[in-house]
Amino acid sequence: MTETLLAEADWTARAEAHRSRVEQFIEPHLRRARAGIPHPVWDFLFRYYSLRPRQLRVWHPGYGFVLGGSSRSYLNRAGYGPHPAGVTVTAEYLRSRVDTVEFIATLLRATADRSPRLNCFGMHEWAMVYRAPTVRHGQVPLRLGAAGTDEVVESMPLRCTHFDAFRFFTEPAAAMNEGPLSRRDQPEWEQPGCVHANMDLYKWCYKLGPLIASELMFECLELAADARALDMRASPYDLRDHGFEPIAIETPAGRAAYIRAQQDIAARATPLRAAIGDHCDELLVAAMVAVGN
Rank of each mutant, 00 (worst) to 15 (best):
R32I: 00
S155E: 07
Q191S: 02
G193I: 05
T251L: 11
I276K: 05
R72T: 11
P28H: 00
P133F: 04
D99M: 13
D231G: 00
L223T: 09
S96H: 10
E151Y: 00
R109M: 11
G243K: 11
E27V: 05
A35Q: 08
Y49P: 03
M217Q: 14
I104S: 13
V129K: 13
Y48N: 10
F121S: 02
C280A: 13
R19C: 12
N76V: 01
S96A: 09
L108Q: 04
L75N: 05
I26M: 01
R228N: 09
R97N: 03
V22T: 11
A266G: 05
K207N: 00
A146Q: 14
R95D: 02
I259W: 05
L208M: 15
M199C: 04
K207S: 00
P252S: 09
S214K: 14
M156W: 14
P53H: 05
L230E: 00
G36Q: 04
V289S: 06
D150T: 03
G277Q: 09
F169A: 03
E282G: 15
M217K: 14
G209H: 09
Q191K: 01
Q186N: 10
E154V: 03
V140F: 05
S96I: 11
L45R: 04
E178Q: 14
F25T: 08
I265N: 01
E282M: 15
N177H: 06
L107N: 07
S96L: 13
R167Q: 14
R143F: 05
A91G: 14
I104C: 13
H39A: 04
H18W: 13
A248S: 13
P187Q: 01
A224K: 13
A105K: 11
Y206A: 04
G81Y: 07
R47I: 09
P210G: 05
V98K: 10
M123T: 09
P172D: 09
P53C: 11
V153N: 06
H39V: 05
L181S: 02
L56P: 03
R52W: 12
V140I: 10
L142E: 12
I249Y: 03
H196V: 11
L118K: 00
F65Q: 10
G79Q: 00
E178R: 15
L107P: 02
A112Q: 09
A197E: 11
E190T: 12
A256F: 05
Y93D: 07
T12V: 04
Y258G: 07
H18Y: 08
A275T: 13
F169R: 09
P84W: 12
A224M: 13
C220I: 06
P192Q: 09
M176D: 15
W59G: 03
F121E: 09
D241Q: 12
